[in-house]
Amino acid sequence: DSCIQFTRHASDVLLNLNRLRSRDILTDVTILVNRQQFRAHKTVLMACSGLFYSIFTDSLKCSLNAISLDPKVDPDGFAILLEFMYTSRLSLKESLIMAIMNTAIYLQMDHVVDTCHRFIKSSDP
């Protein structure tokens, strides 16, 4: 027996999901971070974040079409993590590293938190 593994399939699907997001097609939730708004797909958010997984598996909350995050969350840090969810690329700017890490802790994105820790350690003189 044989099977054909399309090696680009996962990244091709993610690319298309990101295009859908940028065109606001089938996005089903608005995330409010302070006064900034981010449109996204619930399925992508819950596949990447423990916090969103908990929210959208809760039968009372899963149908919400807007979610307000803790006002302490930095919108720039959230924007970088949302971009990561849809692209696999984490932009680690030194000026924003603490905001990104604290937002990743809040969103329960453990592997990203570990990566931020390693980045901070490696840039510590």
Partner: peptide, 21 residues
Amino acid sequence: YEGVNTIKEMGRSIHEIPRQD
């Protein structure tokens, strides 16, 4: 897929959704 002979296909797997129509 253990024991299955896997052939790798490196090209695109699906159509590409355009950035904008």
